[in-house]
Simulated scan of single mutants.
Amino acid sequence: MHLVGSARRKTKHPAPLIAIVGSDGSGKSTVGLALLAWMQTQRPTAFCHLGKQTGNIGRAIARLPFVGASADRKIVSRSSKARDEKGAGALVSLIIFVLSMRRVFRFLRMRRLHRKGIAILTDRYPQAGIPGPMDGPGLVARNPSGFIARFLTRREQGLYDWMSEYVPDLVIRLNIDLETALLRKPDHRYESLQRKISDVPKLTFNGAPVLELDSTEPLETVLEKARIAISDVLKQYHEVL
C-alpha cells in the first residue's frame, strides 16, 4: 500500500468523497460495491458512476451481425480525429460533446447528493489534465476546424476544468498490467486498454491524496488496504461534527 499525498487534510466537503479510478479490468466495480457495503455501516453513502460508458455502446455495436465490426471501426477512426492536429468535424465533435455531457449530468447528481451530507464513493472521476479515455476531455485538437468544433472543444475543456476543481478527499488508484486486464476484459480493444493503463499513473486529480493499490493482489487484501485509508478520511469528518 502506498499513499501519495497526505490524507490528513482539512475537510472542505459536507461529507467524505472517495473516488476509485483505474483502467477497465482493474476491478473498480467489484472493489467499489464491497467498499460501499462497508461504508454504509459507518454512515449514509451513495455509489456514483461518473463515466460516460461509451465503451459499452461501442462493444454493443461491434457485436451486431454483418455490419457491427465495420461500424465499430468507423466510430473509432472518427473519434481519434478529435484528438489529432485539426480535430473532427462539427458532427463528430457534437456527438463527442453530447457524450461528455452524460458525465456532467452524473457529476451534478453526485454533487446534489453530496450537498445533502451523504458520503460519496465513485467509480471513475473526471480529470482535466490527461485528455482521452481515462475520464479526460475527448475534444483536444490543437487547431479544431470550424467554428462549431472550436466552440465545443473550448466548452468541453471548461467543463472538465470545473469538475476537476471538486477535489476528492481520497483517490483509490487500482493499478493493473495489460495482460491481466485483457484476461478480465477479453471483449475490450487492445489499443484502448493499453492507452488507459498507460494514462492511469499520470492522473493527479488536483493534488488529492492517492492510495496506490495493486489490483492483481487478492481482493480481500485490496479491500483491507482501502478500508484503512478510508477510515482515516471518515475519522476526520467525525472529528469536525
Rank of each mutant, 00 (worst) to 15 (best):
D84H: 09
A226N: 02
G136S: 11
R173Y: 06
E165I: 06
M1K: 04
E217L: 07
F151N: 06
E179H: 08
M110G: 12
V200T: 10
L183E: 10
L213W: 00
L213R: 03
D232E: 15
P14F: 04
I96S: 11
I118F: 12
L36T: 12
G117A: 04
D161W: 00
H2D: 01
A128W: 01
A69Y: 10
N175P: 00
K81P: 03
P218R: 00
I57T: 13
E165L: 11
G58Y: 05
G58E: 03
K52N: 08
G58W: 03
A7N: 02
G55A: 11
M134D: 11
K74F: 15
L219S: 02
Q157V: 07
A60Y: 04
L234Y: 14
K196E: 14
Q53N: 05
Y125A: 06
R43V: 09
D177M: 03
P144T: 14
G32K: 13
V31T: 08
L159E: 13
M163A: 12
D232P: 07
V21Y: 03
V98E: 08
R173S: 03
P218T: 09
K116T: 13
S77T: 15
Q53K: 06
D177A: 03
L211E: 05
G136N: 09
I130G: 00
A60C: 01
P186A: 14
K12N: 10
T45H: 11
V233W: 06
K74H: 15
S79Y: 14
G129I: 02
L152H: 08
S6V: 02
S93D: 08
S231T: 13
I61C: 03
P137I: 12
I118V: 15
D161N: 09
Y166F: 11
A19W: 00
N175K: 00
E239V: 07
K52I: 02
F147I: 13
K235R: 15
R9M: 10
S215P: 06
G5R: 01
M134P: 07
I176L: 09
K196V: 09
T216H: 02
N206M: 07
I57Q: 10
I230R: 05
G27N: 09
E224V: 04
L152C: 10
S164L: 03
G89I: 05
D214R: 01
L94T: 13
L211Q: 03
L193E: 07
E156L: 10
K74P: 11
M39N: 03
A69Q: 14
I95S: 08
S6A: 02
R43G: 07
P14G: 08
T216S: 02
R173C: 01
G136C: 09
L35C: 08
Q236C: 14
H13F: 00
S77P: 12
E224K: 01
G146P: 02
A128H: 07
V171P: 04
I130M: 04
R154T: 07
A128R: 04
K81N: 09
R173K: 06
R195S: 12
G25F: 05
R103G: 13
A82C: 14
P126Q: 13
D177Y: 05
K196L: 12
R142T: 13
A60G: 02
G129L: 07
S145A: 05
G5I: 05
G22I: 01
S80L: 14
